[in-house]
């Protein structure tokens, strides 16, 4: 399953740092976000774009996560050579993240397979 099925997202920028929120549509999926959308998973998903640290902040009261991606905007919004210098489209890339849904027998499965 793609993250997009259970969560929505918005990207913000400050200098060379991007932040991406991941917000569960339904609070019952917050646990899935916590479990599957880790800093590691996000760092791997953005390999080749994000050169610095990825930090995750948890907001249980709104069933959301906030990721802070350092050195992620090609040297900074005001000097980047990138077409999307603000990295505004990164949220859409993160929603493409594939997450494994645990089945009742304990195994994991990609829903598309």
């Amino acid at each position: 399953m793609r993250l997009r099925e259970i969560a929505h997202s918005r990207t913000g920028d400050k200098g060379n740092t991007s932040n991406i929120s991941v917000i569960a549509y339904d609070p019952k999926h917050y646990g899935l976000l916590l479990q599957h959308v880790t800093s590691d998973a996000v760092r791997k998903h953005f390999a080749g774009i994000v050169e610095g640290k990825v930090t995750r902040f948890e907001l249980p009261k709104i069933s959301a996560l906030n990721f802070v991606l350092e050195q992620a905007l090609g040297g900074g919004v005001t000097r980047s050579l990138a077409l999307d210098a603000h990295g505004k489209s990164l949220s859409s890339a993160l929603l493409d993240l594939e997450i494994l849904i645990p089945l009742s027998d304990g195994s994991a499965q990609h829903s598309e397979q």
Binding site: R10, D13, T17, N19, I23, F57, K61
Partner: peptide, 27 residues
């Protein structure tokens, strides 16, 4: 919710000239 987290890093420390705001407990 999307706007609450827009351009926020640590939601418990949103640094402004007048205050370090805490958005982490907002409902």
């Amino acid at each position: 919710k999307e706007q609450l987290l827009y351009e926020v890093h640590d939601p418990a420390e949103y640094i402004q000239p007048d205050v370090v705001a805490d958005f982490s407990q907002v409902t």
